[in-house]
């Protein structure tokens, strides 16, 4: 479970060469986002995230991390600039096309967004019903994904009966059940204690090792230090630094 912690340096170096050749799955060119007449939330963002990459998005609260993630799965549209997901310009995507984009993007939130009155299994299966998967397949795939996050034995419980870490794993299972190319996580460990945080992050590392591109927004410096991934730092809506692990964490603690 902790393999990406054990050999961060080697993986990073090996990875770097690979990423350079990979086609980027998420790209932003001069992206700005403003709401009404308020000062813009994001200003002139340029970024490249390659297929199979694991990226931290960090910065203080209100820096625009959530908004930036929202631009990727089109919960918001960019006011200016271009957002490309898997080579497609999503700014030009019509509203009717949004559902199909989202089927390729798993999203994980700090506040889980689970249905409290449906079983864990149903919560995961929810994402499969949406794409019209037959019932038996839904059951089988949901169980398999729950096994992946280590919750097969809790499939029939209701989410409120689970611990925070377990609930977050259910959310990850729901995000993964459709085999998305990209997984976006907005403060996935924000509500969890340190032990559970490690549990969730290790799970995300595993998922990443299977080839899923992962973007994690967090303001937790210890995470960034521990996992040594490429880190994009937002401040007041601008991308101020692009650092690797330890240095980024250092900057965070200092700044």
């Amino acid at each position: 479970m902790t393999m990406c912690v054990i050999t961060p340096e080697s993986r990073r170096r090996r990875g770097k060469g690979r990423w350079a050749k990979q086609r980027p799955v998420i790209q932003m060119f001069h992206v700005s986002k403003s709401f009404g007449n308020d000062p813009p939330t994001l200003v002139d963002i340029n970024l490249d995230i390659a297929k199979g990459e694991f990226v931290f998005l960090t910065g203080p609260s209100g820096a625009g991390k959530t908004t930036l993630l929202k631009l990727i799965f089109l919960a918001e549209r960019a006011s200016k600039g271009q957002v490309l997901v898997a080579g497609r310009n999503v700014a030009r995507l019509r509203d009717s096309g949004i559902p199909y984009l989202r089927r390729n993007i798993g999203v994980v939130f700090q506040d889980f967004k689970l249905l409290p009155r449906r079983s864990v299994l149903d919560n995961v299966g929810f994402a499969l019903h949406v794409v019209g998967t037959p019932r038996e397949v839904v059951r089988e795939k949901s169980l398999r994904t729950l096994k992946l996050v280590g919750l097969a034995n809790k499939a029939h419980l209701l989410p409120p009966k689970l611990s925070g870490g377990e609930q977050q794993r259910v959310v990850i299972a729901r995000a993964l059940v459709n085999d998305p190319a990209i997984l976006l996580a907005d403060e996935p460990t924000g509500n969890l204690d340190p032990a559970l945080t490690v549990e969730i992050m290790d799970l995300l590392c595993d998922v990443n090792a299977r080839g899923t591109t992962i973007v994690v927004a967090t303001h937790d410096a210890t995470l960034i230090q521990r996992y040594q991934k490429r880190t994009l730092r937002l401040e007041q809506g601008t991308l101020v630094a692009e650092e690797k692990g330890a240095r980024a964490a250092q900057l965070m603690v200092q700044g």
């Binding site: 009717s96 559902p99 199909y100 089927r103 999203v107 929810f126 994402a127 949406v130 729901r174 459709n178």
Partner: peptide, 13 residues
């Protein structure tokens, strides 16, 4: 809430 989640995981209107 259910509708919000449905839309999040890619349900069409």
């Amino acid at each position: 809430e259910e509708i919000e989640i449905q839309k999040l995981v890619g349900a069409t209107n």
